[in-house]
Amino acid sequence: MPERTTHAEAEGTQPSASVAWPIELDAVTVRYPNGVVALRDVSLSIAAGEMVSVVGLSGSGKSTMIRTINGLVPATTGTVTVGPHVVSKLRGRALRELRGNVGMIFQGFNLADRASVYQNVLVGRFAHTPTWKSMLGMASSGDREIVLRALDSVGMLEKVWGRAGALSGGQKQRIAIARALSQQPEVMLADEPVASLDPPTAHSVMSDLARVNTERGLTVLVNLHLMDLARQYTTRMIGLRAGEVVYDGPASTATDADFEAIYGRPIQSRDRLGK
């Protein structure tokens, strides 16, 4: 694995020797302990290296869906297959190994504000580091290397020793992307990554994600509720409404009528981000 990083490439990019993984959902239903059914019988097939948006209003089940893929939310019935792994069969160490191959970024960035940027990105190396080494605070030179490169590729290398909490929202999300990249993942998940950002920052974060897809060839799955972002940055769009897939097709040619079907109401101005 470390071989990936031993060849210096052009500034800001990192070669990915790995092959991206496909994702397969087969009749997946998720019912929470409180009885709420978040996903109903969802079947999907996402090819390796696709850039897919999952669009829906809040409560449509898109957060749940994305979390079934790395096992943060277990599927109640049905199977989720990611690359060579059947997620629902994994426990303990095997599940952690799968998660190590799936990067994820969040709406709220989920950074430890009082920890340094470096420590936050080092989180991405967890699955590749024995627990006792993390305990002793011994990052291998390879891990350190990967962390610095990941930060470099999102243009945040300058901040590496600063505190994560001191950064702006856009910078925090870049750190979060670097954290996911340092996992050297095969799949990248993003749960409303730009919902807490202002429009210009949102566009640059979306371009970062698109770059991850084109330059590293990762499979990218991004939850959005804004129609223009889905059209502009992704190739395929999946529409979710009340836990069911109501649209699955190209993103750029999806019509306003398609979006109205996904939202279940006429389009409003807040469904677009604008510039």
Binding site: E11, S141, L148, R149, L157, V160
Partner: peptide, 14 residues
């Protein structure tokens, strides 16, 4: 190893 060589060049000093 070659780690040092391939480090990003502008790493700020800790």
């Amino acid at each position: 190893m070659t780690a040092l060589l391939s480090s990003p060049t502008r790493v700020p000093a800790k």
